[in-house]
């Protein structure tokens, strides 16, 4: 993309943000179309299943709409949206887990230890095929650390676990993935 095109992209985005702040859902739809695939990728990896990932993606954009007034333009919109989406996706995941915990025995809420993904994935998503088979907590830590670039301190804070637990879950995930790859 050349410099002029990049500039236009930023101009469009700034305009859409301002319009959306004033309640324009069409402008927000433009923002959605520009960023939804990144948000969905994050949600799919954290959720480990398509229906929940879809619900989480919706939650993220509804939250972004509600919080749009807080976006001051100090960072790029994509960065702001990504941070917000990580927080929202984890909250949605927690809510989903709490919901099922009422009906399932505790051991079942960690979901399948290593299971087949419920939905077939397209080609080019080899790693995701394996990630979706990881146990939930290990998967979340692995995605945040290895794919999203969060530190163990940040993950510990986000997930309300200790730094040591984050590291342990990451190594567990890594070992399981290497086993699946071998």
């Amino acid at each position: 993309m050349n410099l002029a095109a990049t500039s236009n992209t930023i101009d469009d985005e700034t305009r859409w943000i301002n319009q959306a702040r004033n309640g324009d859902t069409q402008a927000f739809e433009c923002l959605y179309h520009r960023h939804h695939q990144q948000v969905y990728a994050l949600c799919l990896r954290l959720a480990g299943q398509v229906p929940l990932a879809e619900e989480m993606t919706q939650d993220c954009f509804v939250r972004a709409w509600q919080k749009l007034d807080l976006f001051r333009g100090e960072s790029q919109f994509a960065t702001w949206l990504h941070r917000l989406s990580v927080n929202q996706a984890l909250a949605s995941l927690q809510k989903h887990r709490s919901f099922w915990a009422r009906f399932l025995p505790e051991s079942s809420t960690e979901f399948h230890e290593i299971s087949e993904p419920s939905t077939p994935l397209p080609n080019g998503m080899q790693l995701d095929k394996y990630i979706l088979r990881l146990p939930e907590r290990a998967r979340v830590v692995f995605v945040l650390f290895a794919l999203e670039g969060y530190s163990h301190e940040e993950i510990a804070q986000l997930m309300q676990i200790t730094r040591g637990t984050s590291k342990a879950q990451y190594h567990r995930a890594k070992a399981l993935l290497q086993e699946m790859l071998s």
Binding site: E29, H36, Q38, A41, M125, A146, Q178
Partner: peptide, 19 residues
């Protein structure tokens, strides 16, 4: 695993329109 991490897509299109 390292090679797969590098190849992992940043964006994935949902199977249906969520808008």
């Amino acid at each position: 695993l390292e090679q797969l991490l590098e190849l992992a897509p940043k964006a994935i299109a949902p199977e249906r329109d969520l808008w």
